[in-house]
Design a protein around this nucleic acid. Structure first.
Lengths: 228, 228
DNA sequence: GATGAAGTGTTGTATATACAACATTTTATC
DNA sequence: GATAAAATGTTGTATATACAACACTTCATC
């Protein structure tokens, strides 16, 4: 028994882009997705945990964090509604999550066995093909995202890291003022620097007129990100 | 007219993993791959250049470098025989190469139009499906690779970066002594640090017995990389 | 609106890295 | 095996970051 509303949610998910309702229904009937609710700040998947299901975000946001043996933590990215969790993991040969997934807000997730999902090819090969195409696109975009992150981390000064990151987000949002959905501590983790140093640097950059910010809202003045 | 030898090369390529010779032939007949030779240190694809074909390495090695507007360069990875170039790029919506690809040695590449390759589904849907599956696996492994790189770059001290990198390679190679196929200058670029600082650090690490090295061959003593 | 908790700003010291400039070693080529 | 070119090692100075410790501000909750 699949809730009607689940069909609607999945229809809007990137993995099922271009799917008709009846096709989503077919997928649901075949894979029997499971829904699960999480409160804020709960662990959804532990780093290193074996993963067999993909997760689709129905509501809320999920934060992906990688912990290091020295105790440091590093924020990889923040997933939003409609996005797919663990798609990279289930495609690798290791099948263990390289990072922890935590609920950043209360959230509701839909889990689907990836193995089962692919078996839909037996019933309807065309559906499987389209899922694979969407999947490739998602993975490729994920690759681009990671390359952006590497772009940020490859900068040798903190100011360069901040400017690179902000200009990437500005480009994505299409506005000079935007919300980065991280507080300063998380921002520091994302940039892989000490929090207090980031605080100082941000203030300096504000004083010198490069940026402005208030809580999680930033404004970037001028500065072009992309090379070439 | 497809050279027999090309079939053999493609059969061993990761994108066509599990394909029979006759299936490769079918792919070749349909897509008409083009072969091209490069001398050492030639540009294969410029950063920012639109890309429509994937490349498969028949022989030689290709180095992927990202150039920044400030003049810095960063080595992303080194591709070897049988690996696929630009698979990530052709799957994104931008279709422009995020990095430059240069021949590190004399090399020979086989180019295939990605659009054409996918159209093989019209003729033989099963082939397309298997290509898509292999493609997803390659992209996912690429994601893991980039995460490793982020792991390295997220370290705050150079020694940690070096140890993290070396232990990843050691794990991959399964030996304590291995060739990293980069000289010191390239290694510094990969780690995103100043070359002379790397030289000093490597010497120090050798003196303190953490590592040993000679040219591009490194030995890593002890040290575990993975957390958890 | 008091209270505590979370987030942000500030300071100081120790350490690490960038960068430039040059010395030395290794490698390739004739 | 002489020569130039490439790669690696070394030094010194300026600057940036890490880390700890604490002050201040904002926010949520009662």
């Amino acid at each position: 028994m699949i809730a009607d509303d689940m069909i609607g949610v999945l229809k809007r998910a990137e993995l099922f882009k271009g799917f008709e309702e009846c096709e989503i229904e077919q997928v649901c009937d075949f894979t029997i997705p499971v829904e699960r609710e999480y409160e804020k700040n709960q662990v959804i998947i532990h780093q290193g945990e074996p993963v067999t299901k993909i997760g689709i975000i129905r509501s809320g946001t999920v934060i992906s964090t990688k912990y290091h043996f020295n105790g440091d933590a590093q924020i990889l990215r923040i997933y939003k509604r409609g996005e797919v969790l663990s798609l990279d993991t289930v495609n690798t040969t290791f099948l263990t999550s390289p990072a922890s997934l935590n609920s950043q807000t209360d959230c509701s997730l839909i889990f689907i066995s990836y193995k089962k999902l692919l078996e839909i090819g037996r019933v309807n090969p065309a559906l499987k093909e389209r899922i694979m195409m969407n999947s490739s696109e998602i993975l490729s975009n994920e690759l681009v995202r990671l390359m952006y992150k590497i772009d940020v981390l490859s900068k040798r000064t903190l100011q360069d890291r901040v400017l690179t990151y902000l200009s990437i987000i500005r480009e994505k949002k299409g506005k000079d003022t935007f919300d980065i959905s991280m507080n300063q501590e998380q921002f520091a983790q994302y940039l892989c620097v000490n929090r207090s140093v980031l605080s100082k640097e941000l203030n300096q950059m504000r004083k010198s007129g490069l940026i402005d910010y208030n809580k999680n809202r930033y404004t970037l003045y001028e500065h072009t990100s992309t090379p070439k």
